[in-house]
């Protein structure tokens, strides 16, 4: 063992071998993640006959945006996009409002049976969507809600995880401040708006971001609920497109994939810190 200088926590001593291994590992994962992404983007700019050649072209020659115009004009992609926006916005708003209110009631308000209610809310996390779809499908069909926005949104609007996340946040707030506000005569809603929420923005942002990502990406339920472009979101539209064109005409399918994924990737690039915080929440406390 060699002797070496004192090391701080941020730059732990590592041998040159470890550093090399670290860079090698980085290069390797970059390849694994980036090459398929590049492949998809490159294909989306190829002319049809250039996709079906061996060996494959790695630079589209000539590059064309035809696939994108095909997707936007001949397939109702704009309609799918609109549906995705509406569904994601409605569901996220509902979930954020319900999550905050539930968490607030379950952390800072006192009422009989509070711990039982908390258990009921939190146990919903243990029940996967996939198990409830059959009965929910029957109920929503009976209501005549197939191919409607409310049929997609309402059954998904209950919040378990968000309640849990926000409740932890509210419980971590200093009790003195909350008690002081109460003594000043703040009512429950005023307390929430003026005192609790201003101290909880970072967690709310993280919660909102995971909700938007999850709802944008939601597949099974909207897929069962919508048959056509009247209500189907992008994810469902994409597999409809794949059904029609996949295999024989990959160009527009890849262009459709890029368009489906792009909004969420842009959001991720802008807000990755908060997003990673939200999506990995629950792990940190161990």
């Amino acid at each position: 063992m060699s002797t070496h200088a004192q090391v701080g926590p941020s730059d732990r001593h590592r041998s040159p071998l470890m550093t090399t291994a670290g860079y090698a590992a980085m290069a390797f994962v970059v390849l694994i993640i980036a090459v398929p992404l590049l492949w998809i983007v490159v294909t989306s700019f190829k002319e049809r006959q250039d996709i079906y050649v061996r060996p494959a072209q790695w630079i589209p020659n000539p590059a064309t945006t035809d696939n994108y115009s095909t997707v936007v004009t001949t397939i109702p992609f704009p309609a799918y996009f609109r549906n995705s926006l509406i569904i994601t916005a409605a569901l996220s708003t509902a979930k954020i409002v319900l999550g905050v209110l539930s968490a607030y009631a379950l952390s800072l308000l006192r009422f009989p049976g509070r711990s039982i209610v908390f258990l009921i809310v939190i146990s919903a996390l243990m029940v996967p969507n996939q198990i409830t779809v059959i009965s929910n499908y029957a109920l929503v069909s009976q209501l005549g809600w197939r191919n409607t926005y409310q049929g997609i949104v309402i059954p998904l609007a209950g919040v378990a995880f968000g309640t849990f996340l926000m409740r932890n946040q509210f419980l971590s707030l200093p009790t003195e401040i909350i008690e002081a506000a109460r003594l000043d005569g703040a009512g429950p809603m005023k307390l929430l708006w003026r005192v609790v929420m201003p101290m909880s923005w970072p967690t709310l942002v993280a919660f909102s971001l995971i909700t938007v990502v999850n709802e944008w990406n939601e597949y099974l339920w909207p897929f069962l609920m919508s048959d056509n472009e009247a209500t189907a979101p992008l994810q469902v539209g994409l597999t409809i497109l794949q059904n029609n064109e996949g295999g024989t005409n990959w160009g527009p399918v890849m262009a459709g994939t890029v368009l489906t994924v792009l909004p969420i990737l842009i959001l991720f690039l802008m807000l990755q810190r908060q997003m990673i915080k939200g999506l990995t929440a629950g792990a940190v406390k161990g």
Binding site: L101, S102, I131
Partner: peptide
């Protein structure tokens, strides 16, 4: 405050379960 969320979870999670 909890009622809407509870109603949704009961109707669309526990009832179908």
């Amino acid at each position: 405050l909890l009622l809407p969320n509870l109603a949704l979870l009961t109707t669309f999670v526990y009832r179908p379960l």
